[in-house]
Design a protein around this nucleic acid. Structure first.
Lengths: 337, 337
DNA sequence: CTGAAAGCGCTAACAT
DNA sequence: ATGTTAGCGCTTTCAG
């Protein structure tokens, strides 16, 4: 593979000159510069990013730590959307992305910091990390620039992007309350996600605002799984048939609840209202289409990359990006009779 | 950031010894080795993969060239599934993935080979490339190890993974024919995808096998888009109401056709049968659930990574991996009355 | 068992 | 405008 040395030899100049010519420095004679460029093209030279990074101490690379990069992640296209957003922004900024492998069994052999430092990524975007993951503390301790999705961590070098999850659920409750619902249950996700806490807070606050009471036995953990949500909803509906609406912390779980309702012969939305969260692709395609809180995951990814680069460049002091969400009213919610 | 030099100094040995100790060479005194490892841990040393790669001429990195990494790609989870499969295999083999940015406007500034050589990736997996993309020729010309998804390219250093697209559609036709359908139309995808040709061939062969005639005016191009497929199907159904079944080259297009049918008040599957291809997540969630040819995209990705590494290691001579597909009969196909 | 020295391909002072 | 030199952090002969 051709190097600048080869070019230098062919052009009869020093490697320094070649380096400068190729990197667009002004202090190179126009003719030599031209000659060098021609030769470079001719011998199909391509710069060795490794060598360059080594000496410049900059890799133009950001790392991606993704927990949901598994077979199941395909159903909710969240991970994918975020990834796309990141990719979009990084493309424009000429940063490349490296996907770290954390799916392996030996993920715990290497510490987070090691993973990043080995590859000399300039920063990291972390997605889908659970709040009992040991990496989380490391992220906070290390000084590697980092942006988390939906995990509130703030430091000199770390920030996060999220949506207003409290408000998202509150909007939902308001909508439900306006439709006359009073007996509202919630299917939350597991505790290892920060958003679960927020969404539950939104539930409490929303109920309070509507003058309704939260019954703790009507709040269950669907583990962000369709099947589990279905089971839990089934139990709840059997025990408390007076429930008229379910607020779910994810669309997949809402789908599970709709299944449960169907199983019991309760029509959605006529006899039961159900709401989701996320607005995954399925939400609008399914029948009845899901009323849900839409998160723009693409924008979240885009903003995450933006924030990370601004941390890298120390251009701004803020460490948080809040993305708007929106209640999409579709066909799983209806006025109570 | 700590280097082996630091360790060497602290341990009172040469860098050579440190290097050997850390890389598990046998010819190092056990005690020195232990000391070195302790120090390494203490000062939080992590090896610089850049430097190592530079000297070893191996990066343990494979590149990913993905065309469908855009906002729309989220609907069909194909790209994501393939990615997941690749990631799974590479994780086990300790290879990292770098995502190349081809979405940028300046994608044509850099040639394919440049892109790969700059980052010194050991090989590349290419997905979603269209057959009029100039990169394709470059892939063939260059000697960079490469595996394509669904694009038949074979050379010393290149191979591909795909499914039997001809057979996939033939299975569909067989199914439809058995249900009594004779007036079968096809919504194919655009010409820039290799699979389109295959799927059309499957259509011809299938019809032939069933003793049915292909009417060219009943074959249209849905461009793999839901909306376009809907439009085309609408036209066709208006002009030729005798059509009783649509074979589509993708699930998204099948969804479009179902929409068109609904628009015209034709019930699916009672008054019109529709089949898809891919078995994306939507296919089974939508009502009526789509009869479709399922491709295991996860396995395709997994196989692609497997094939690439075997090319890199020159362990086997085959350059093709064929993944099974399966006709999933659901609720958009029905016996004709 | 250990060290000295060379070199991977490149950039960046510091001359000239 | 160009060249000399040093060095990024690591591995690898080759000598001891």
């Amino acid at each position: 593979m051709a190097t600048i040395k080869d070019i230098a030899k062919l052009a009869g100049v020093s490697v320094t000159t070649v380096s400068r010519a190729l990197n667009g420095y002004s202090d190179v004679n126009t003719k030599t510069k031209q000659r060098i460029e021609e030769i470079a093209k001719e011998i199909e030279y391509s710069p060795n990013a490794l060598a360059r990074s080594l000496v410049m101490n900059k890799t133009k690379t950001i790392g991606l730590l993704v927990s949901g990069l598994s077979r199941e992640g395909a159903k909710d296209n969240i991970v994918f959307d975020v990834l796309t957003g990141i990719n979009e922004f990084c493309g424009a900024e000429e940063y490349d992305l490296v996907l770290f492998n954390t799916t392996t069994s030996k993920q715990k052999e290497k510490t987070y910091a090691q993973l990043c430092r080995e590859r000399r990524v300039e920063g990291v975007i972390v997605q889908g990390i659970k709040n009992d993951d040991p990496y989380l503390q490391e992220i906070f301790d290390s000084n590697i620039p980092c942006v988390l999705i939906d995990v509130p961590v703030e430091s000199e070098t770390a920030g996060y992007v999220t949506t207003d999850n409290v408000d998202g659920i509150m909007k939902t409750i308001r909508h439900l309350a306006k439709l006359g619902h009073e007996n509202i249950a919630m299917v939350n996700g597991h505790d290892q996600a920060f958003v679960s806490k927020e969404r539950f807070k939104g539930f409490e606050l929303g109920m309070l605002e509507a003058g309704l009471t939260v019954r703790n036995e009507w709040v269950c953990d669907g583990e962000y799984s369709e099947r589990k949500a279905q089971e839990e909803a089934l139990k709840l509906l059997n025990t408390y048939p007076e429930i008229t609406a379910f607020v779910c912390a994810s669309d997949l779980m809402a789908l599970g609840v709709v299944r449960a309702a169907k199983e019991l012969g309760r029509k959605v939305p006529d006899q039961l209202s159900v709401t989701g969260y996320d607005d995954i692709t399925l939400a609008s395609y399914v029948t009845p289409a899901l009323t849900t809180v839409a998160q723009d995951c693409f924008r979240m990814g885009y903003a995450a990359a933006d924030l990370l680069l601004s941390i890298l460049r120390q251009t701004s002091g803020d460490r948080v990006r809040l993305i708007e969400n929106e209640l999409k009213i579709r066909n799983t919610t209806k006025e109570i009779k």
